[in-house]
Design a binder for these strands. Structure first.
Length: 260
DNA sequence: ATGACTGCCTCTGGCAGA
């Protein structure tokens, strides 16, 4: 069973590329971030044509997340991250799919730092930790995946000094990330590539793609049972090099069936 | 180097992204 994540940077602009990716890689579950559309504009019919059923949590212009499932309807568990009633940004969607709890997240960028956007990021990460601890307490097989906007290690970026002052790799951002791991979640891509050097994002600017100036910010965190069932994972890097590509590449994880 | 590119909604320029 393949579970994938793709920050598509605008579902309207990216639809042909997105449909192409689904057809080529056919994930059982696909989590999307930055759909950048209101709920009414979500092209559900296009996914139905390919056999995918969807849940989505949109917002005008910015943010927005969705969960697609191959041949079955994801059952909604939660829409929006708890812990701040004033937070109206669409960054969290949780569902039950194929006997697995799936949380699709678009974690705040946090730039510039320091400042209110960075404070929002750190507060969001603590709220996420609270929610993930609740999921863990349910002891269900679970995958929390999406754009975390955190570069966890120095070998997760082509040049640490290039982004030293960026919110994505501040000690506070990394500390919050490692607190999640400390609660028993496994960084799937790190497990598959412990040596680092794997990127999921390349900026549109300054020839970053051509120079391979990338970094890793799209992640999949696995509950203990899902970590045991992990077979392989990777990045669909070639999709970043296509016409009208997103600035992120899709990431994917592959699991053996449950023993139960 | 106050840069670079892209998407969105549109006060077609300003904001956001990372």
């Amino acid at each position: 069973m393949r579970i994938a994540s793709f920050n598509i940077n605008g579902i309207k602009a990216r639809l042909p590329r997105l449909l192409e990716w689904l057809e080529e890689t056919r994930p059982a579950v696909a989590c999307l971030q930055e759909i950048k559309t209101q709920d009414e504009g979500f092209p559900a019919a296009e996914f139905e044509k390919l056999g995918y059923h969807a849940l989505w949590h949109g917002q005008k212009s910015f943010n927005g997340v969705a969960i697609l499932a191959d041949g079955t309807a994801p059952v909604e568990v939660m829409r929006g991250l708890p812990g701040d009633p004033a937070d109206e940004q669409s960054r969290y969607l949780e569902a039950e799919v194929f006997g697995t709890r799936i949380a699709c997240i678009y974690l705040p960028n946090g730039n510039p730092q320091p400042g209110p956007k960075f404070d929002y990021k750190l507060a969001w990460m603590e709220r996420l930790r609270t929610r993930m601890r609740a999921i863990a307490a349910e002891e269900v097989p679970a995958v929390v995946l999406g754009d975390f906007n955190v570069i966890p290690h120095d070998d997760d970026i082509w040049s640490p000094p290039a982004m030293a002052d960026d919110a994505l790799m501040q000690p506070e951002s990394r500390d919050a990330w490692f607190r999640l791991l400390g609660d028993g979640w496994t960084d799937a891509l790190r497990t598959c590539n412990p040596q680092g050097g794997v990127w999921t994002y390349w900026d549109y600017q300054a020839g970053a793609w051509q120079r391979d100036h990338g970094f890793r910010i799209d992640h999949a965190l696995l509950s203990p049972e899902m970590a045991d069932r992990l077979i392989a994972c990777g990045v669909d890097k070639d999709h970043r090099g296509r016409e009208k590509a997103s600035d992120h590449a899709p990431v994917w994880t592959e699991f053996r069936p449950s023993a139960a």
